[in-house]
């Protein structure tokens, strides 16, 4: 998946699924990307989230990053925001946990309580 032809194909697929579903507000997954987060492995966490969301062809999920939010000791941090539900912040996330967060929380709506830092 790395040529311009792939990109055009991808565009078509995304457009179709957007048109089909008209999802309204998107689910957002936010990864903390301050110096603290980056040093703790936030980029790898983001890569894992992207892989998992792309693999499942979820087009109603936006993946974004944010700077340091002052919880450096808990980095890498991942927020999951599902429209109409309270924000959930996971701490000390690694690539493997990130994949589980996508599978359980983003897809099925089940919060993984033991990793949540804002209980």
């Amino acid at each position: 998946m790395k040529s311009v032809e792939d990109l055009l194909k991808l565009k078509e697929e995304v457009q179709q699924s957007l048109a089909l579903r008209d999802e309204g507000e998107k689910i957002r997954v936010v990864v903390g990307m301050g110096t603290c987060g980056i040093a703790a492995g936030a980029r790898e966490v983001m890569s894992a989230v992207l892989d998992e969301v792309a693999k499942r062809r979820l087009t109603n999920v936006a993946v974004t990053q944010t700077g340091c939010i002052g919880l450096c000791a808990q980095e890498p941090l991942v927020d999951v925001l599902i429209p109409g539900k309270p924000r959930v912040t996971y701490g000390k996330v690694n690539a493997q946990k990130a994949r589980q967060i996508v599978a359980q929380h983003v897809v099925n709506g089940i919060v993984i309580r033991e990793w949540v830092v804002n209980k």
Partner: peptide, 26 residues
């Protein structure tokens, strides 16, 4: 990239994984 994608935002996983692979491939 924006010219090609038009209205589709960058922060969708298929787009970002494409960017990652395109850069590393290049």
């Amino acid at each position: 990239l924006k010219e090609i994608l038009g209205d589709i935002p960058f922060n969708l996983a298929p787009v970002l994984t494409w960017v990652r692979d395109f850069v590393n491939g290049g």
